[in-house]
Amino acid sequence: MASTTSANPVADIFSVKGMVALVTGGGTGIGLMITKALAQAGAAKIYIAGRRLNVLEAAAAQITPLAPETAIIPITCDVTSQASLTSLVSQIESETGFLNLLFANSGIGGPQVPQPGPVANGSSEEVISAKDWAAQHLAVPMDDFTQTFAVNVASVWYTAMACLDLLDKGNKQGNLGWTSQVIVTSSIAGYNKKAPGGYAYGCSKAATTHAIKQLAVVLPTWGIRANGLAPGLFPSEMSAPIVERIGGAIGGSDAVPISKSIIPLGRTGDETDMIGTVLYMVSRAGAYCNGNIVLIDGGRLVYFPTTF
């Protein structure tokens, strides 16, 4: 157990001083918030992985002045490619030799098809026909649907497997007072039966959440934990179209006012909400959690038929 005998034991509980972490999709949106949380809480080294090196480098430049003692290392990686994951892990292995935390955050939204509803028909309205609604789905290439699963589900599993030995070595390194961990960013969409974020996305995030629970059963074999984060609407590239559709506009990392008929708290989440939640999960404060899915949505799910 990490010591809490300093002048500020509460700060120690939420500190990640000395941690070595990998955050996939760590350059924008929620991934950037996660990286900021780790850096400002004292992480020694954070690898941020994604497909756009310029975005990752901009994120590193933004965070470094906030936490100059933390090394932010951008690495180009396609999480759907086993070869790319192998290259990523090889670099971490050669430079550092271990990980304490894998935050598998990469994700995509997937194709959008409107839900069935009334359509204008002269002076009256009628529900779209089953044939026409099905045609809207069939107009989307199947590859677009399955690619959502490739990024949101398969890449989570393969990233975890690729990093498993590094996480095991993190436990053996003993540089922290708590065990190595995999955290996966899922979504409230995995519980929402109405699928406002798209059917492919909702199905994929349900699978993501189940993958987290499966990992939480097997990874403790090697003393490694697995937990998940299920956010609602937060400022990000992915959420911007949804927020705009329900009456808001994304601008930076601040909360966006939203009608309380849509989100009971009357706003989206913001950077501070995410940083506080992440620090609980990654620090000594959350070290007894395994198999947990932390829901953070301002109450949005209460307005939907859900499985939560």
Results as ranks from 00 to 15, higher is better:
Met1Glu: 14
Met1Asn: 10
Ser3Arg: 13
Ser3Val: 14
Ser3Asp: 14
Ala11Ser: 11
Phe14Gln: 06
Ala21Asp: 04
Leu22His: 04
Thr28Asn: 14
Gly31Thr: 01
Met33Glu: 08
Ile34Gly: 02
Thr35Lys: 03
Ala37Thr: 11
Arg52Ala: 09
Asn54Ile: 11
Glu57Val: 10
Glu57Gly: 04
Ala60Pro: 02
Glu69Arg: 11
Ile92Ser: 07
Asn100Val: 01
Leu101Glu: 03
Asn105Met: 02
Ser106His: 05
Gly109Ala: 12
Gln112Thr: 13
Val113Arg: 13
Gly117Trp: 07
Asn121Tyr: 14
Val127Gln: 12
Ser129Leu: 06
Ala130Arg: 12
Gln136Gly: 13
Leu138Glu: 15
Pro141Trp: 08
Asp143Pro: 10
Phe145Leu: 11
Phe145Thr: 07
Phe149Pro: 14
Ser155Trp: 04
Asp165Ala: 09
Leu167Gly: 03
Leu167Val: 04
Lys169Gly: 08
Lys169Phe: 09
Gly170Lys: 01
Gln173Ala: 15
Gly177Asn: 09
Trp178Tyr: 13
Trp178Arg: 05
Gln181Ser: 13
Ile183Trp: 03
Val184His: 00
Ala189Gly: 14
Tyr191Gly: 00
Asn192Leu: 01
Asn192Ala: 01
Asn192Arg: 02
Asn192Trp: 00
Asn192Met: 02
Lys205Cys: 09
Ala216Gly: 07
Val218Glu: 08
Thr221Asn: 12
Thr221Ala: 12
Ala226Thr: 00
Asn227Pro: 01
Ala230Cys: 12
Gly232Ile: 00
Phe234Trp: 04
Ala240Leu: 03
Glu244Thr: 13
Gly251Glu: 13
Gly251Met: 12
Gly252Cys: 12
Ala255His: 10
Ser261Lys: 13
Arg267Tyr: 03
Thr272Trp: 12
Asp273Gly: 08
Met274Phe: 06
Thr277Lys: 03
Leu279Ser: 02
Ser283Phe: 11
Ala285Asp: 06
Val294Tyr: 08
Gly298Ala: 03
Gly299Arg: 05
Arg300Met: 10
Thr306Phe: 00
Thr307Pro: 02
Thr307Asp: 02
Phe308Ile: 09
